[in-house]
Write a protein that binds this DNA or RNA. Sequence first.
RNA 1: GGGUCGUUAGCUCAGUUGGUUAGAGCGCUACGUUGACAUCGUAGAGGUCGGCGGUUCGAAUCCGCCACGACCCACCA
Length: 884
Amino acid sequence: MSIPKTYDPKSIEDKWYRYWTDNGMFRADSRSGKEPFTIMMPPPNVTGALHMGHALQGAVQDTIIRIKRMQGYEALWLPGTDHAGIATQNVVEKSLKKEHKLNRHDLGREKFVEKVWEWKHKYGDIITGQYRKLGTSCDWSRERFTMDEGLSEAVQETFIRLHGQGLIYKGNYLVNWCPTDMTAISDEEVDHVERKGHLWYVNYPLSEATAKKTGQPFITIATTRPETIPADTAVCVNPEDERYADFVGGEVEIPTTGRRVPIIADEYIKPEFGTGALKVTPAHDQNDFDIGTRHNLQVINIISKDGSMNESAGAYAGLDRFDARAKIAGDLDEMGLLVKVEDYVNQVGVSGRSGTVIEPLLSDQWFVNMKPLAQKALEAGRNGEFTFYPQRWESEFNRWMENIRDWVISRQLWWGHRIPVWYYTRADGSVDETKDYVVSIDRPEEGMVQDPDVLDTWFSSWLWPFSTLGWPDEKAEDYKTFYPTSVLVSGYDILFFWISRMIMGGLHLTGRSPFRDVFMTGIVRDKQGRKMSKSLNNGIDPLELIDQYGADAVRYSLIVLCAQGQDIKLDPRRFEMGRNFANKLWNAFRLLHMHMDEKESYSTELNTDTGNLTDRWMISRIHQTIAAVEDDLSRYRLNEALMKIYGLLWDDFCDWYLELIKPEYGETMDRETVDRAVNIYEILVRLLHPFMPFITEEIWHSLRSREVSEALIRADWPVNTGGDPFGEDGRLFTTIQRMISSIRNIRAEMNVPDSQEVAVVIKARDQATAKALSENRVIFEKLVKIGSLGISTTADRPKGSASAVVDGSQVFVPLSGIIDVEKERERIAAEVRRLNGFLKSVNAKLGNEKFMANAPEEVVEREHKKRSDTEINLEKLKTILAEL
RNA sequence: GGGUCGUUAGCUCAGUUGGUUAGAGCGCUACGUUGACAUCGUAGAGGUCGGCGGUUCGAAUCCGCCACGACCCACCA
């Protein structure tokens, strides 16, 4: 069977994914008794399609869970989706309109919710299907949905508990109202954007008495929202403001309505802003509401839930709030009350979802009192019950906890968890507000009606780490085994929406932090650093990338780019890196494969009993790399770990090891060499598997035939035994590498044709080196085109040679006739200059008394070694230079 | 107004608790293709680590200020 020269991911990825799932290899066993390791997948919206953020976090989570699985943990990665209240309701409403020209009210609540469920069943698993393309080893048998039975129970239970504890309350307050989605939203769902607007200066006529007292006909206020004038119930100034001292206690007439309201004083007012006088509109501004509360002001609401002016707005009733703004401004102008209009840029709150300008609106809503929950979270954070990676997010988290505000959890939507609250009704069916409501999952009494509102989507998400495991049943097998979870992987963009709330919810409801570590990834951005979004149409579709480069390549590149929470500016070309690496890996396999006998059975364990320097060096490199990789992984430096594995495979294994064991063209590799190379390669493949699962599993099974129980996904992760058995040999090999590079360099610099052999003479620094080099002369012969190689401690520099000094030994390449003496002189001189500079800096340190006194001994020792090594090399180079 | 992050090679970025006269990939230059791999190999060029000051024997790394860029939070009409 011939193996293609280039690696083709398409032909194998689906095959292995099926193999893993068919054999239940992602499934976790709650009774294995092994130490558990749990990751909860942040549930994507059912409406969603896989985007680069998912791909990045999916790659990270899968890599971690695969490592832990190979390390012998009972590894559970639990997937699922979020019902995503508003988002999903909107999508279904849109399709309803498009296909049937109906809105949700035409259907009625029950029918509509049925439709959403239908939609969910039809499209809800698209995104999880897309996740699979990436190779994610989630336990699909445990997949959950935020509105499935168990999670709904958890949501209701939580509401009932918190209500019982007095932490959930109902109240009539100003909330952020979205006129498009016709629901309240939380503060976190409001974005503040800069908008160009105007500041209108308006004269409010004073009452006769006030006019007389002050000697003025008007008081001038400045406002950005003239349409709310009909809702004004006071004018307010600063009590310290002498300009208005006489005005306080007086009365003004509200323009357009003529209603009389008091002039009051409040510290809140900043005298330097505008005119120093503020119109107070308690129904439509949070600050004004607060002032109103302090001064017992009347509250007049003139805006409806759809953003239009209501009947209390008088002549403006029925107009949209922005049309009303223009109209009122015009009217004021006509009435001669408009003093001036200035351009003004201010921050406007818009709905994060619809982009509509938020209207602060007074309404009955349910809230969670967050302060007590935040208090626990702060303490737990201080006690180290959870750790952020990178750490800086902890202070961000703390700041948020310290300034937490109550959470509006009711939404005026149909799609979501119904609030488990029931009201008594009157004979006509209307809610009887004279009687208390009852909190209950089931209808407590015939004739009672349930609160029509649903809960914020995040009210189910914040329970995700434990509701998915069976909570509130604390005896549930999965809950007992897998909770608390080990690490949460998420982007920082939902730190406040989700991560903080999970910590608070987990601590309060289960008494434990829901996860030990929080690994915050950066945000994937486009080439220019902009967030990827539909509106900018700058998104890159991960599925297209997988199609183009292969899942392993996409994973590789994402993880290498994912450095410690740094945002990722994504250039599609970056994926070539991963693709090329996969191809390299593939061809290393091809090389071994062509020398493997299909019938031969190779030993199952690496035989380290070898006198061969190349083997010993390679084994040493593997030891060093595993140790370094383990250290990186313990701190979630996946990028560093992967780069090291990349270097080990490409530079050490392919460029040196394979080049050295590769036989001459047409010859075959001997059995022992193949055996050892296969074993070494298998270690590397095991190291790489969690990062690039498909190609490694394919190679793993191509190297030998394996039982299902021997699949790579369940194989052992290479262990660092703590030592580096062949460290000394490694250093000798490195010297040889340097010598070879310098010979190659001479050849290239002196334009020696590739086909031409050169003689090489090495004058070793000492007998031991000479002996060691002689024993390994085959390495030179293999890697550079050498006619003859003389090694001794006494050799003279042949006439007309180019030279190099490596670790105290001299390498001469006689090139009579070819050598350009001038060039050679300059080459050596440049090296002398370089070493002189280096030596100077070393000497500066060693000559510095304070350095000698303060620097750690090992650092001083290292400098000494540097000096003596450099001096030896330098001296030899200078001699050569003098001779030239 | 408060806070966070970034500024390192032409480009995109690594650089761990201060101790290598700073690394990778791409790009570039030269040479190389019956040979595992041109999605490749060999050799090479290219950086006063944004600026200024400080701490230190020693700073890309720690501290302060400044410049530029990005983001988060905040009730100034």
